[in-house]
Simulated scan of single mutants.
Amino acid sequence: METFASLRVDGQSVYGMLHLPDTEAPAHGHPSVLILHGFTGSRSSDHRLLVLLSRYLVTLGVASLRIDFRGSGDSQGDFSEMTVSREIEDTVAAFAYLRQYPGLDPERVMLLGFSMGGMVAALSSPQVRPHRLALWAPALPELWLKALPGGFLPPVVTDQGGWPLGRAFLQELPRLRPLESARQWGGEALVFHGDQDATVPPEVGVRYAAALGCEAVGIPGAGHTFDSLEAVDLLHRETARFLLGR
């Protein structure tokens, strides 16, 4: 079953899509995973990457919630207000939503983040304590910092290809320590990265894996959005295998 989800964070609505297995729930409830999209993305993501993952997981008895961060997709707020800290707040609220949802196991709520969503997931993990953590092509703050003109912050808003990128987002980046958060968490994790990723180099995924004490799985021939049918199939199958503990 697929149903719309809505939760409030700091007076604004975060919207998402909740996927629930049609099978009878185990005694403790179905496992679930919160799925976080990337920078300028939405809960569907590139070529429906996240939608298809949710629909695949539900056939395996795993529920999922895909949210639009505030300022993205259908959720309230403006993109100019977006910061990583705000996305962490959205993550914490959505994680609590899954933990309290009837028929879901509150102890087996997992977390998956793609690109900047992977960085948000790593930063959130010590607080939400996911049962398992999966990162797809996780980014680091340097990805945006290196693009600053002359190393200086813009006065208010930068036109990021039609997206109004706020000064607060850039101002916060140097203070973020996603690898330290990953190290601090220390639970079951797995990193997936396309070996042809030109947006977030594969060595970044290796750094995350080292911090998490886990493996980094290379997806052969895949770019940042895992942009082939073969790559997506492999990514989804191996992600599901990890989330199910197989």
Rank of each mutant, 00 (worst) to 15 (best):
E89N: 13
D90N: 15
T91P: 13
T91C: 12
T91Q: 12
V92P: 04
A93S: 11
A96L: 10
Y97T: 09
Y97E: 08
R99M: 04
R99E: 13
Q100H: 14
P102C: 05
G103V: 10
L104Q: 11
P106H: 06
P106M: 04
E107I: 02
V109A: 04
V109Y: 08
M110V: 08
M110L: 06
M110S: 12
M110C: 10
L111V: 04
L112A: 06
L112W: 06
G113M: 05
G113I: 03
F114P: 01
F114H: 14
S115T: 09
M116A: 11
G118V: 05
M119E: 02
M119T: 02
A121N: 04
A121I: 10
L123M: 05
L123F: 00
L123H: 00
Q127A: 13
V128N: 08
H131F: 14
R132H: 03
R132I: 00
L133S: 10
L135P: 03
L135I: 03
A137Q: 02
P138T: 04
P138Q: 05
P138N: 11
P138E: 09
P138H: 03
A139R: 01
A139M: 01
L140W: 06
L140T: 07
P141S: 06
P141H: 13
P141F: 12
P141Y: 09
E142W: 11
E142M: 07
L143V: 06
W144V: 07
K146G: 10
A147F: 09
A147L: 13
L148M: 14
L148P: 09
P149R: 13
P149N: 15
G150A: 11
F152I: 15
F152A: 15
P154G: 07
P155L: 07
P155H: 11
Q160G: 03
G161K: 10
G161F: 06
G161N: 11
G162I: 09
G166T: 15
R167H: 15
R167L: 13
A168I: 09
F169R: 02
L170V: 08
Q171F: 02
E172C: 10
L173R: 08
L173N: 09
L173S: 08
P174H: 11
R175P: 05
L176G: 01
L176Y: 06
R177K: 15
L179R: 05
E180P: 02
R183E: 12
G187I: 01
A189C: 08
L190C: 01
F192D: 05
F192M: 06
H193N: 07
H193V: 04
D195T: 01
D195G: 00
D197G: 01
D197H: 01
D197E: 06
D197M: 01
D197C: 02
A198C: 12
A198Y: 12
A198S: 15
T199R: 07
T199A: 03
T199Q: 06
E203C: 02
V204L: 03
G205E: 02
V206K: 12
V206I: 14
V206M: 11
Y208G: 05
Y208P: 07
A209R: 04
A209Q: 10
A209P: 08
A210Q: 12
A210F: 00
A211P: 07
L212F: 09
G213R: 00
G213F: 00
C214Q: 02
E215G: 02
V217A: 01
G218I: 00
G218K: 07
P220R: 12
G223R: 13
F226K: 00
F226L: 00
D227Q: 13
L229E: 15
E230A: 10
A231G: 10
